[in-house]
Design a protein around this nucleic acid. Sequence first.
DNA 1: AAGTGAACCAACCGCACATCA
DNA 2: ATGATGTGCGGTTGGTTCACT
Length: 328
Amino acid sequence: MNIQSELLMDVKGKVVNNSSTMIQSEEEEDMDLRRGPWTVDEDLALINYIANHGEGRWNSLARSAGLKRTGKSCRLRWLNYLRPDVRRGNITLEEQLLILELHARWGNRWSKIAQYLPGRTDNEIKNYWRTRVQKHAKQLKCDVNSKQFKDAMRYLWMPRLMERIQAAATTTGSSTLSVTPNVITTTNTTNNNNNFEVHSGGNMMFSTPTIMNNNFGCSQIKQSYTPENSSTGTSSDSFGTHVSPVSDLTHDYYSVPVCSNNSNPNMDYYQQSHQVNYLDCITSPSGLFSADMDFQIMEPNTQWIQNGDISNNLWSFENMLQQLNDNM
DNA sequence: AAGTGAACCAACCGCACATCA
DNA sequence: ATGATGTGCGGTTGGTTCACT
């Protein structure tokens, strides 16, 4: 494909015919830069160049590779899309749980959070947060940073996620929630006690305290849980709202080993770059599983759990928040 | 079938910081 | 010490797809 003769798009997405502009000065040369969606040829050029020369020095890389893109654009395209270890597809329940936990700990430190989700990019996590989580806060007319919403996430949404993870595991009777060797993986398929085990890379394992039934009154919740509303690893936000299936964006139009399934094409990368101490993150001081967390409002006798028919309105977020409010 | 709005996500921008000559 | 350049990050935008009417 001849990029010179292509139609270019400016920042606003307008189509600009490049053939009318023969520009020589360096300043004007910048205006020759392509913007907007990447083409297959551009992707291939970038992949091939990095395969031969490695990454880094993105501005010169862009020039050397013959790409009419900024270095920034090339870097972003590589990191967020073309990198072989980028894991595409829906955010799993386990990943959702981890995102919530880590966001509670670090806030909008997307890149830092992404370090704990191998194969996921900060952009992807950020998008997930903005589209799924903030959406609900907006719908409920409460600030996503408000204590109200944070408490709801911490005491309701996250336990629910864990319930669903456990339920999915027991329902399927197999490790269908496994995604990659290093992503939190539900392994306990027959355990009928109230713990479930999560491990990373097969060697980090924790067992959650039995907070679900004992402290959260979630035994009621479990009763109304049905496999129909469970997730078996496909994306679904945990408020119970419908999320349309996202097409598999794995690019089979070129032979890049995009990791979209259980296989991990580059284990070295993970082992070097994503040594994750899940135990540490799960037991964070601000986290759900912290020993010193404030469970006061979640005492079993707490009214918000015991009165009202939670099972009938299960996971209606409005009800959750109302119950939290009533109890505060 | 067509129109419309919501949801999703790739890509961009500006800024801050790091590195180097 | 300083300016230029490279890199990384968080916020935002806009095109595409999907669901609903």
